[in-house]
């Protein structure tokens, strides 16, 4: 039987972040169990993206510890975190505009598999593009993509780094309800087929309700509550945080 620690893929303990005089996060504890999809929600400015950036190594916390598979990865640089098995997308997409979609994805491949040949990375990158439905645009420069396609490219690049934990930052923006349904199915498919664990910031509550096993609610830099989607949406504190008085 697996130890309890093995089930926790990522764990944050007492994470605090100050920007100048502003307390962006205070004493945040959270964990993400292996193989689950966990939603991270909260009103604007609650500190969701800051928490993301801390886990991904984009910024260092003022205090607190981040553990990945039991290993302390606090303050690691982003590239090391990525090579350790955590991939992330950016809320405001950051494609390499002057590179083709294939090359965009290939960057993720070659840094996870150093020394791989052009034919190898071409095949692997094409496979990731295929997964997000961008195969036909492989030779297109990324700056020519529309917003939705850029979000897909973000996911393809993240998949190319062969992550164990995938962190998605508002990937559903700009989609209609039909497309949201498809996207939710796609993300669940990622988890099932690629055995990923997913931490997902999203504003579209319907998608979070449908796709996640657990939801973490942040408000004003603190954990407001954690629970199943149903528990969370019925929690009066959450309703209060979103709607105010």
């Amino acid at each position: 039987m697996a130890r309890e620690d093995d089930l926790k893929l990522v764990q944050g303990v007492g994470i605090t972040k100050r920007f100048g005089g502003v307390q962006a996060l205070s004493d945040v504890d959270f964990e993400v169990e292996k193989g689950t999809i966990v939603g991270l929600i909260g009103p604007n400015g609650a500190g969701k993206t800051t928490l993301f950036n801390i886990v991904a190594g984009a910024i260092a916390p003022s205090s607190g510890v981040v553990r990945f598979q039991g290993e302390d990865i606090t303050g690691w640089s982003a590239y090391k975190v990525c090579r350790r098995g955590i991939a992330r997308t950016f809320q405001v997409t950051r494609p390499f505009g002057e590179m083709t979609c294939l090359e965009n994805v290939a960057v993720g491949v070659v840094n996870r598999q150093p020394g791989c040949r052009r034919s190898q990375w071409t095949a692997l990158a094409a496979e990731c593009l295929e997964a997000v439905g961008l195969r036909d645009l492989a030779a297109t420069e990324a700056r020519h993509l529309n917003v939705v396609q850029k979000k897909r490219l973000e996911i393809a690049r993240a998949l190319a780094t062969r992550p164990e934990l995938l962190m998605l930052d508002e990937v559903l923006g700009g989609l209609n309800s039909q497309e949201i349904q498809e996207a939710v199915a796609f993300i669940q498919g990622l988890r099932d087929q690629r055995r990923l664990t997913i931490l997902w910031i999203e504003h579209v509550m319907g998608a979070i309700m449908q796709a996640t096993e657990k939801v973490i609610v942040l408000d004003q830099g603190k954990i407001l509550t954690t629970g199943t989607p149903t528990e969370v949406v019925n929690d009066p504190r959450v309703i209060h945080a979103y709607l105010g008085d």
Binding site: A56, A58, S77, C82, F96, V107, N111
Partner: peptide, 14 residues
């Protein structure tokens, strides 16, 4: 080229 286009995105990709 990745670094030239976007350093932050590049480091997030390893």
């Amino acid at each position: 080229r990745a670094v030239q286009n976007d350093e932050r995105a590049a480091s997030a990709l390893g």
